[in-house]
């Protein structure tokens, strides 16, 4: 094979690699969907975040509006503090309710924002005051069993 044919083959090979990388970026990965560097920050405090993870989506009415950027424990109040990064084009009223919800029965957990009716909007660095913690299935079952037991012992008396 002469040199120019080799050059063409190698060029095509590298081009195929770039096409594959573009396929990875656009079709398989989420490079264009959301750049975590832009947007403003909000903070939400929860008694229990359940299985919420860093990078979990923040959704409002099912639409992804941002991501969970950081999760830590407040050392004084023992509350979980979640830092959210919200896309700049979305604004939320000051009385927005943040809740941790599971998509489907076994799906991943995400943070749901339900906008309120306040005319003031949350600004960068502010806190979502009304929050609803994750539902811990074990606690729920435990409570149910406890109630049942209390009921049945009440019946006997």
């Amino acid at each position: 094979m002469n040199r120019s044919k080799t050059n063409v083959a190698v060029g095509a090979f590298v081009a195929l690699g770039i096409v594959a990388l573009a396929f990875m970026a656009l079709k398989v990965g989420n490079l264009v969907s959301f750049d975590s560097a832009e947007g403003y920050r909000l903070e939400a405090r929860f008694d229990n975040i359940g299985g919420l993870r860093v990078r979990a989506p923040v959704k409002s009415a099912g639409v992804v509006v941002g991501r969970v950027e950081d999760i830590r424990l407040d050392r004084d109040t023992y509350e979980a503090v979640a830092q959210l990064r919200i896309r700049p084009e979305y604004r939320f009223s000051a009385d927005t309710i943040g809740a941790i919800v599971t998509s489907g029965l076994l799906g991943e957990q995400y943070l749901s924002l339900d906008a309120g009716g306040d005319s003031l909007y949350l600004k960068d660095g502010e806190r979502i005051i009304k929050t609803q913690s994750a539902i811990v299935l074990e606690k729920l079952i435990g409570q149910f069993l406890y109630n049942k037991a209390a009921e049945s012992s009440g019946d006997k008396k």
Partner: peptide, 15 residues
């Protein structure tokens, strides 16, 4: 198929 894939694969961290 595609949307679940895109939701879980991060370009920087995975690719």
């Amino acid at each position: 198929f595609w949307s679940q894939m895109r939701a879980s694969v991060d370009f920087r961290l995975d690719v």
